[in-house]
Structure formats: structure tokens, C-alpha cells
Amino acid sequence: MTTITALGIVLLILMVAVGGKQGWTAFLSLILNFGFLYFAIVLIAFHVPPLFVTITTGIIILAITIFMGEDDLRTTVTAFYAALIVTAILIVLIFVVEHWAMVQGFGTEDSDDLEGMSILIGISYFKVTVTVTTLSTLGAIAEAAMAIAAGLTEILQAHPEVGNRQLMVSGMTIGRQIIGTTFNTLFFGFFGGFLALFIWFAGLNYSLGTIMNNKIFVAEMIEILISFVGVLLPVPTTAWIMTRRRHKIADKQDS
């Protein structure tokens, strides 16, 4: 048995033991997300336009993460709409920023790994970078939108008569409570993954100017900063969607 299989089985057992049915669906969502991510790579390798792959895979991954993570419809549908709007805004921002930064493809630090490879593959690495950056923020967007939507659903259930303006304010308050720890999740997630690169930079005495213009470092900074934007934008967006949709779902559930 390989280590990956063994770790996967341990994770599955723990998830079912701790979360029951919800743990099982969460594990399934992880597997599905992996499948669609890998499928996205294969599609791009077959020269399907990367932007098309980004949008379809993005919507699928958001749907999997949100609808398989929670059962309450008011929470999930609201979170899903908010996540879609935020993702659309982010794709535009990513496009502009990546075009400005030109960090596609590989840096000189990758040369060792690329030895013997043919890197001219006839697919625009720029478009692939837009795909990568978009997909890497989806988890953060979904999580933030779900947290806000779940909190607001709770408030609406306890006080169905609460005004729209109060609902917006409550959304921002919940946002304030989650923002510190969510930033930590992303910060450590990214920086943990690039420990080796930072040791390389420090070990070879890269100057600040070199690091700030280094292709890989800048690409990494863009990813982390975009994902910070990706947890900030869902806060007002989700609250706003909730004010629009509050009656729709409440009425449906009553009838």
C-alpha cells in the first residue's frame, strides 16, 4: 500500500468518525475536486481554451465545495450566488494583474526541474497562469461565503423580522470575526508551501530588489494577495445577496 492510500484511508476513517454522514460527503467532495482539477489539466493539454476550462471547472468546484459542505438551502444557494459573483470579479482582476506582472510559466530557479523537457508546448502559459490563480482562490471564496451565509441564516431564523440594513451590518460583523483567522489559513497555506524557495532566496543572498522582481516570488505574492481579496469580497456580496433572497427561500420552505 502506498503512503498516499494509507493516509487517505486514515483521513476517511477520521472524517466519518468525527462528522458522520457530513464527514463522508466532505471526503467525497475532496475526491471530486481532485478529479475535476486533474481533468482541467488534461483538457488544457488537449488545447481546450484555458479560459473556458477555468470558468466551467471553477463553477463545478464551487458547487461541489458549497453544496456538499452544508445541507441548509438558504445558506448554500446564497453562498453559491455570492461566490459566483466574486469569482467573476476576481477573474477580471487576475487578468489585469497577470497581464501587468507577466509571471507566466517558469522562472530561472525552475531550470533544474526542466532539464530535458520541451517547454515550447504551443499553449499560452499566460492563460494557464490565469487558470491556476483563479482555481487556487476558489476554496477561500467558498469558505468565506459559506461562513457569512451560515451566520446570516442563523440570524434570520432567530429574528425573521430583522431589517435589510441590519442584515448588512450583521454580515460585516461576522466578516470581522472570521477575517483574522481566515487570513492565517491562507498565509500559512501559501508560505508553508514555499519554505524551500525562501530558503533558496536567503541562502543565495538574493537582494530585496531581486526578490521583488523574481518571477516565482511575484507569482506567489499575486496568488496570496488575490486570495486575500477573495475572502474580503464575499463578505458584503453575501450579505447583499441574502437581503435579496431572504423571502424567496423562506416562502418556499414554508409552502
Binding site: 465545495t65 459542505g69 482562490t137 469558505e143 486570495s227
Partner: peptide, 10 residues
């Protein structure tokens, strides 16, 4: 579930 997905995607 959502948290594991965040790290998984990054």
C-alpha cells in the same frame, strides 16, 4: 470540509 478544500486547492 470547506477548510480541507481551501488547503487542498492551494
Amino acid at each position: 470540509g470547506p477548510l480541507i478544500n481551501v488547503l487542498f486547492l492551494t
